[in-house]
Design a protein around this nucleic acid. Structure first.
Length: 592
RNA sequence: GGGGCCGUAGCUCAAUUGGUUAGAGUACCGGACUGUCGAUCCGGUGGUUGGGGGUUCGAGUCCCCUCGGCCUCGCCA
């Protein structure tokens, strides 16, 4: 070892002992006759002092140290002089009086300093990720991630789970997200796909009798990125045999409880609250509602039908919905200008045609540019429906059910943040259950699986597969944290005939099903146990636990919004020979 | 594919309505200094204002194209 201690070790109790430290120069305070260096490693910082007793040579060498030089120092641990302790440092009562200094490596002038207060642009941080990762915050985030994964692994090991690795090179299936494809050299013109999740493999493991499987699995989806979405991400993937949905949810409940306790010292009350999909959409307009605050959606379609206001009445009469939310005390916080901004927002982002609003005045009357189109008695009914008080602001969406959901969910989230309706570190866990089995694609007639094609219908809905697929609910459950989907799972179909029936409904004919999923159908007929599981988004969980705004801050080497790695330059060109060997030819953008 | 924000010194930012030689802090270089802890003080280097085109007597500022970063809609079983 090049060192006897880390920069986080030394305390007053080590006084008068000799120690050797290695680390990075955090700052160098040169007073001429004395030099103070804060030496940093992942464990902490320790002040190293060079004085006249160090000798002229050493003093001069210390003066030449610059930020991020990597050095090795040996000296005596000393108590700092009276009044010179630094309460900001854990090691602040002592300092290392340096006897020898070795520069292990210099640093060129830095693109940015890991210690600087203002964060540089994210492109720079990503390009010089090694510098960004030296920042205390980033180190904290990645340590937190590591701890959380350790807790998960321990938890599942205690419960007899077996960790099995599944292939990265698999087969492409057109269902779901766009695949990342890998050309095969041996099979000219054919491609592997990187896994979107280990879904089928883990089901096969159940059929193989492993009973309880878990994996920290990397997954890939070639879709556009968001602050909470990366093209490759990590799931805690698990599957169990002979279980029902309650078993899985209880298991995850207890895991979340342990994580919250061990990581944040928070006591989570169990069971975590559950809500059906239909209820979530009706009350919050979204299948992953942010339950850190209220502001629930209130339906007013019946009142709107009585209004002279044509927009409201025609929507109500044509089968649409008129719904609203109440922002308590927000009337004065949203000027006409800001309300216009909100209107633009819902038009641009959710395809809303507009946004109606009412302000409750001091005298209790409802003010709005459209108020004149409502009878006073009707306005009173609206007010009562919302239990609106002076100072409240009412926002309405009158449109199809889908658009009112999107619009009001968007408004609710935006207002929740802008009005600071929750604490920055607050966390709320819940389940949303009983998702529809299928949804119709906007421009197509056929059904598509809401979760995935292997999801089992609720037993009481199974008969409706043949008659009314839209009414069919799945044994599905999503874990919601602060309005984001942190995980989702289902009980799977374990009957080959039922699986064929679902494939058929999804427009996958028998031949195609046999070709793509034949192995699954085969496995199902050779003694498949009832089984189900869940996958948790580890990145998102860490993001919430660390109270971060971006997933990229808890991933060591994330990609940009255009899915590029600015440090390595991936994706990049490859040799022509490589392409030829693979039988791949690149078609330029303008030739498509 | 659509909407929005941003790009000025290595870094973080400023620059009046379009108007003289584009500034500051920090980093870097040189010097001074024994108790600092964002050390301080003095001096200095550092710019194709992301790139290209246009409007104008004159463009960091206005317009078009383009590159890059971020947020978002679509998309993400």
């Amino acid at each position: 070892m090049l060192r006897t201690h880390t920069c986080g070790d030394l305390r007053l109790s080590d006084k008068d002992t000799e120690a050797t430290l290695c680390g990075w120069v955090d700052v160098n305070r040169d007073h001429g006759g004395g030099v103070f260096v804060d030496l940093r490693d992942r464990y902490g910082k320790t002040q190293v002092v060079f004085g006249p007793e160090s000798g002229a040579e050493l003093l001069e060498a210390a003066g030449r140290l610059r930020s991020e030089y990597v050095i090795r120092v040996t000296g005596v641990v000393s108590q700092r002089p009276q009044g010179q302790a630094n309460p900001k440092l854990a090691s602040g009562e002592i300092e290392l009086r340096c006897r020898s200094l070795e520069v292990l490596n210099k640093s060129a002038p830095l693109p940015f300093n890991p210690g600087q207060e203002e964060l540089p642009g994210e492109d720079l941080r990503l390009k010089h990720r090694y510098l960004d990762l030296r920042r205390e915050q980033m180190q904290k985030n990645l340590f937190l991630r590591s701890r959380m994964i350790k807790i998960m692994r321990d938890y599942f090991e205690e419960q007899q789970f077996i960790d099995v690795e599944t292939p990265m090179l698999g087969r492409s299936t057109p269902e779901g997200a766009r695949d990342y494809l890998v050309p095969s050299r041996v099979h000219n013109g054919q491609f592997y796909a990187l896994p979107q999740s280990p879904q089928l493999y883990k089901q096969i493991l159940m059929m193989a009798g492993f009973d309880r499987y878990v994996q920290v699995a990397r997954c890939f989806r070639d879709e556009d990125l968001r602050a909470d979405r990366q093209p490759e991400f990590t799931q805690l993937d698990l599957e169990m045999s002979f279980v029902d949905a309650d078993d899985i949810m209880h298991l995850i409940d207890r895991l979340m409880q342990r994580l919250a306790k061990d990581v944040l010292g928070l006591e989570l009350k169990l069971p975590l609250p559950r809500m059906t999909y239909d209820e979530a959409m009706e009350r919050f307009g979204h299948d992953a509602p942010d339950l850190r605050f209220g502001m629930e959606i209130v339906d007013c379609t019946d009142l709107a039908a009585k209004a002279e206001f044509r927009v409201f009445r025609s929507v109500a009469e044509s089968g649409g919905r008129v719904r609203g939310i109440k922002a308590e005390g927000a009337a004065t916080k949203y000027s006409r200008r800001l309300l216009d901004d909100l209107t633009e927002y819902v038009k641009n982002d959710f395809g809303a045609k507009g946004m109606a609003w009412f302000r409750v005045e001091k005298d209790g009357t409802l003010f709005s540019p459209i108020a004149k189109n409502f009878a006073p008695e009707l306005l009173a009914e609206f007010k009562q429906r919302f239990d609106a008080q002076p100072g409240d602001l009412l926002l309405f969406s009158a449109d199809t059910w889908e658009v009112t959901c999107k619009t009001l969910n968007g408004l609710r989230r935006r207002l929740g943040e802008e009005l600071e309706l929750y604490e920055p570190g607050q966390m709320h866990f819940s389940w949303v259950v009983e998702f529809p089995m299928f949804e119709k694609l906007p421009n197509e007639e056929r059904w598509t699986a809401m979760h995935h094609p292997f999801t089992a219908p609720r037993p009481q809905d199974a008969a409706q597969l043949a008659t009314d697929p839209s009414a069919c609910r799945a044994v599905a459950y999503d874990l919601i944290v602060n309005g984001a989907e942190a995980g989702g799972g289902t009980i799977r179909i374990h009957d080959p005939d039922a699986q064929r029936q679902v494939f058929e409904l999804l427009g996958i004919d028998a031949e195609t099903a046999e070709e793509r999923f034949g192995f699954l159908l085969d496995a199902l007929k050779f003694g498949a146990p009832p089984h189900g599981g869940i996958a948790l988004g580890i990145d998102r969980l860490v993001m919430v636990f660390a109270n971060l705004d971006s997933l990229r801050d808890c991933i060591a080497f994330p990609k940009t919004q255009r899915a590029a790695d600015l440090m390595t330059g991936a994706p990049g060109d490859v040799d022509h020979d490589q392409l030829r060997e693979l039988g791949v030819r690149v078609v330029r953008e303008d030739e498509k």
